[in-house]
Computed example of a mutant assay.
Amino acid sequence: MLVNGREVPGPLFDFGLLMFHNAKLLLQNQSGPFFYLSKVESYMEARLWSQIFFWTEKKLSMPTGCIKATVLIECVLASFEMEEILYELKEHSAGLNCGIWDYSASFVNKFGHRTDFLLPDRSKYVDMEKRFLHSYMDLLVQTCHRRGALATGGMAALLLKLLEIKAGVDGFMVYDMDLIEPMQKLFKLHSHGQNQLMQLREDITVTAEDLLIMPAGGVTLYGLRYNIAVGVLFIEAWLSGRGHFFYLGKVEDSATAEISRSQVWQWIRHQVRLEDDGTVVTRALVSSLAEDLMEDLKLAIHCQTSSDQQRLMTAVAMFLEIVQKNDFPEFLTTYLNLDHTFLSSQSQHENGQTDTVPKARL
């Protein structure tokens, strides 16, 4: 979107539209303009958002501090600046949030070229009980509660919710409004009061080593196939205008797609060997497995028309392009929005051309 001939960053454009059209209406209905800030890496970004919030409140003659934002700590760099991020947002802060898969993927994003940051199979070796992840959550809760700020957990399975409550979180993010009531009941059952701000977590000390140590483990064929499937199916859902989907009984979204494609890229780069039989993970192996998965993927999306098949084949080609690149594409959704393969695919769909499949580029 261009304003006065200049391209406007998407978050600022969306923020401006919502504030101009809806902010006062939200306040009148005992709610407010509440946001979550994702992909924040530094307190300097939080400072910028705070300045934007102050300017907007003044411009629209709204009460100072009525805009609230929860910052998702989903980048390893931000985990070292949580105190500073809360400080910069001050009266605009609605706390911090944990996101296990985006956070895990950020290790590949920032350190994926290093063998000492090789992330093992997430389906077998990565969960919230691992040292680097439970330390991250413990530190987030401790940091928030020291400052009287709320700490929230992410969108995850029931077992993880219980671990988050035990760690001291004050609530959860949900992807479906129907989950609000059962999550509230779960929270009341396993905690005391409306939040857990009184849990200051003074019993823990988290070090840099705690935050940066990778869990032990290798890579399985099942995990590789699963990551390929999730990555492809997310792109197919994205091309269909959907942000999440169900696969093998689990809800998958941009976060699980990020960790899936990140791991495949890293395993190819470091040519890891599968635990199953010692096979080296290569570009050729990933391409072969993607082809082998086609029938399963067709069933997963209920593929019925030539357009469905074209979209799936486009998703496969795009996934292979992303994981086979020499340089790691920083964010999957940004790449899908800006890359010419996505744009050409959309153009083909609009023009009814479904007989060609974009080829992966290295």
Rank of each mutant, 00 (worst) to 15 (best):
H270D: 05
V280S: 05
I259T: 06
L239C: 00
N326K: 12
D253S: 05
G278A: 05
T333M: 08
I268L: 03
Q310Y: 15
T282V: 06
L293F: 11
G241S: 15
T256K: 04
G243C: 07
M313K: 06
G241L: 10
Q271S: 14
L289T: 01
M318S: 02
F234Q: 08
L293G: 02
V251L: 04
E295L: 12
V323M: 02
V264N: 05
P329S: 11
L248K: 07
E295K: 02
G278W: 02
V272Y: 04
R261Q: 14
F246Y: 09
L239T: 01
Q263D: 13
L332K: 04
N326Y: 08
W265G: 03
F331D: 11
G243Y: 03
G241T: 10
F245H: 11
W265F: 05
R261L: 08
D292I: 01
D339Y: 01
D327K: 14
V280K: 07
L239D: 09
I259R: 08
K325T: 03
E258R: 09
I259D: 01
S306N: 14
L233S: 09
V323A: 02
G249L: 06
I268C: 09
F319P: 00
I268T: 15
L338S: 09
T279M: 15
G243I: 04
G243K: 07
I235Q: 03
L289F: 12
K250M: 10
L274S: 01
S240R: 15
E291D: 15
V323D: 01
G278Y: 02
Y247A: 01
L332W: 05
C303P: 00
W238S: 12
D276G: 12
N326R: 13
K250C: 06
T333I: 11
N337W: 13
D276Q: 07
L297M: 01
V316L: 11
D308H: 08
L233D: 08
A255V: 01
T333V: 14
V281A: 01
L239S: 02
S260N: 12
Q271C: 06
I301W: 02
V316W: 10
S262V: 00
A284M: 07
D308Q: 04
D253T: 05
S306E: 15
T279G: 08
D253M: 01
L233G: 03
I301Q: 02
S254D: 15
E291R: 13
S287W: 07
V272R: 01
V323N: 00
S262T: 00
H302F: 14
W267P: 02
T333S: 13
A290F: 02
V316S: 12
V316M: 14
E252T: 00
L289I: 12
M294T: 12
S288M: 09
V280Q: 07
D292T: 03
T333Y: 12
I268H: 07
F328M: 04
G243W: 00
I322G: 07
S306V: 12
H340E: 06
Y335A: 11
V316I: 15
A290N: 06
E330S: 10
R261S: 08
R242W: 00
W267Q: 12
L336E: 03
A255L: 04
D276F: 11
L239Q: 10
L336H: 05
L297P: 01
S288W: 10
Q324H: 11
N337P: 00
L285M: 10
I301T: 02
D253I: 02
L289E: 08
K250I: 02
Q304N: 13
L332E: 04
N326W: 04
E321S: 08
F319Q: 13
Y247N: 04
D276L: 09
Q263R: 05
S307H: 06
D292G: 00
